[in-house]
Each structure stands twice: as C-alpha cells, then as structure tokens.
C-alpha cells in the first residue's frame, strides 16, 4: 500500500470509479449541449437563459461542474505526481489547482442561481 494524502479519496479505486462516472456525466452533458445548439441554430439570449431557468437544467449543469472539478482534480493530481518531482513544486501546484477548481465551482453556482 502506497501512502498519499493529497489525492481525492485516498483510494485508487474510488478515484478510478469517480473519474469514469464524471466522464460519463460530462459526455452526456456535452452531447446534450451540442444537440441543443444544433437544434437552435439561431439561438438568442432569451432562449439560452430560458433554458437555465429550468431547475432540472440547473441541477444538471451543477452536476457537470462538480464532475469537471473532480475529473480535473484526479487528472491533474496524477499529472503532478508523475512529472513534478520536487515536493514544493508539486504541493504548490496541487494547492493552486484545488483553489482554482474551488473558485470555478463557486463561480459556477453563482452563475446558475445568481440574478
């Protein structure tokens, strides 16, 4: 057993499952978005914001944002542990990524439920 404290769940298996589940969510979200855009070639702001007035769409989007955050964290954590050998650099990078993802997530919530 290799010890680690900065990965998402401390378990390789749950990281692995989470990455796959989040990938599926993102794939579905992407397909939905592409389909929606194709079906609305002359999309205007009213229609677009109308879509996000719908609570189901907000929940779906939030789910996608969380999936992005989890997916990105697991992936970038892996990249950091592969390629960044100096501890200070690796830890610094990981903290930066966590903060960035947190900010993006909060920002996303604000956009979805904000005014």
């Amino acid at each position: 057993m290799v010890n680690n404290i900065t990965n998402f769940s401390r378990s390789g298996l749950s990281d692995w499952v989470l990455q796959r589940v989040s990938a599926v969510i993102l794939a579905v979200y992407s397909v939905f978005m592409v389909g929606y855009l194709l079906l609305h070639p002359n999309l205007d702001y009213t229609t677009w914001s109308g879509l996000f007035e719908n609570t189901a769409m907000r929940v779906f989007s939030l789910m996608a944002f969380i999936a992005i955050a989890a997916h990105a964290w697991i992936g970038l954590w892996t990249v950091a542990t592969d390629y960044m050998k100096p501890t200070a650099l690796r830890l610094g990078f990981q903290i930066f990524v966590i903060l960035a993802l947190f900010i993006f997530l909060v920002w996303g919530v604000q956009v979805l439920w904000g005014a």
């Binding site: 057993m1 290799v2 010890n3 680690n4 990965n7 401390r10 378990s11 390789g12 298996l13 990281d15 692995w16 892996t78 542990t81």
Partner: peptide
C-alpha cells in the same frame, strides 16, 4: 486486494 487499493500500486 487491500494492499493494492491505493492510487499508485495498480491505478497508475
């Protein structure tokens, strides 16, 4: 299995 369930041993 319990010895392998960390992010490195198998999942790399």
């Amino acid at each position: 299995l319990s010895e392998l369930d960390d992010p490195f041993s198998v999942f790399r």
